[in-house]
């Protein structure tokens, strides 16, 4: 274990652009590396991605390991795993972070198996125990009512996938210097057992959700589909996007794409209405970074009030119609818009 050095971040690239979560992880990784007094490295794989290496440094890395190979043009487990394993075996790291995206999770699971090491999924908090040089990777557990800190005591690297939008990226420092190390692997296309035939971009409701400025989300407290209709009514009144909790999705009131939380989407709108939502951690991790949170719940002790900027204690079925009416009245005063910014 003595030779294990450095904090690594897998840099996910799609459409020649670094994913936001990778930049966030460089920010989080920088803090861990500083505490441990070790270098921070980015692992950059792809075809024609070399030019992105300087960005990885600007966002906090000291070293960038680059494998540029036509076989790595599009993500495939087998090709990416081979590249990561060969780097991990040659250079060693003590902590290795991946974004909890479909590709990041897929890759990390495969790499952890081959390296016989521990992997914590969907982490939302990261820290280190300096004495033991242990990564403390915390995540919501058991459907999301408590947090569990997962440790990997004896195996290296300690690996974790981290939820997008919970860590903070640094502002890029364009004067920052670092080392770029290129490796050649000579991967062969004929060794690959999968082919990506086509990539289809869907401007789904999910995409709209992550861009939305205002989201109205409903939970179990809405009671039934008729009750949940009030969520749609309020959203329509103020031009917001509709979302909901796992319970609302499981009850069939809402498609899965519109679920906010640990097993759904993470959103950071400017305004988030949490209505009839108790505030289980499972849900809260997906919305707590919203700028302004309004909670409406009839239980004054509901944990959602701990994350809310403003809370109304009351029955959503009574509050929402009044809220809609009030918005409409205000908008009349201002000629159709509540805000005249």
């Amino acid at each position: 274990m003595g030779e294990s050095l450095g904090v690594w971040v897998f840099i996910e690239v799609n459409d020649k652009k670094i994913e936001g979560v990778s930049l966030e992880l460089l920010g989080a990784g920088r803090q861990l590396a500083d505490k441990l007094n070790v270098p921070l490295a980015g692992v950059l794989l792809g075809d024609g991605v070399k030019n992105l290496a300087s960005d990885v440094i600007y966002y906090g890395a000291d070293i960038v390991y680059v494998v540029d190979d036509p076989v790595l043009k599009l993500y495939r487990t087998e090709a990416y795993m081979k590249a990561v394993i060969s780097l991990a075996e040659k250079y060693k790291s003590e902590i290795f972070l991946y974004g909890a995206t479909p590709n990041g999770k897929d890759l990390a699971s495969a790499v952890a198996t081959d390296l016989s090491t521990g992997l914590t999924a969907d982490t939302t908090m990261l820290d280190v125990d300096l004495d033991k040089r242990l990564l403390e990777a915390s995540r919501p557990a058991f459907g999301g009512n408590i947090m569990a800190t997962i440790l990997c005591k004896k195996h290296r690297p300690q690996m974790a996938t981290v939820r997008p939008k919970v860590m903070q990226a640094l502002d890029p420092d364009h004067g920052r210097q670092g080392k770029i190390i290129e490796e050649e692997l000579h991967l062969r296309e004929e060794d690959m057992r999968t082919r990506v035939l086509r990539i289809v971009k869907e401007v789904t409701k999910t995409a709209n959700l992550s861009e939305a400025d205002v989201i109205v989300a409903g939970g179990k407290g809405m009671g039934d589909p008729q009750g949940f209709q009030l969520i749609h009514d309020l959203a329509e009144t103020i031009g917001a996007s509709v979302a909901g909790t796992r319970d609302a999705v499981e009850a069939g009131w809402l498609p899965h794409e519109l679920q906010i939380g640990q097993t759904g989407e993470t959103v950071t709108p400017k305004l988030y209405f949490a209505i009839g939502i108790s505030g289980a951690i499972q849900h809260v991790v997906g919305m707590k970074n919203s700028e302004l949170i309004i909670a409406i719940n009839k239980d004054p002790n509901a944990p959602i009030f701990d994350v809310a900027t403003y809370g109304i204690v009351g029955d959503a079925h009574e509050v929402i119609p009044k809220l809609i009416q009030q918005f409409k009245e205000l908008s009349k005063e201002k000629g159709g818009e509540l805000s005249y910014a």
Binding site: E236, G239, L292, K328, S331, E337, Y340, A341
Partner: peptide, 15 residues
């Protein structure tokens, strides 16, 4: 209170 935060977001109220 939301009106005071008008710099944050812009509602288009549909009546």
């Amino acid at each position: 209170l939301l009106r005071e935060k008008q710099d944050l977001f812009r509602f288009n109220v549909n009546s």
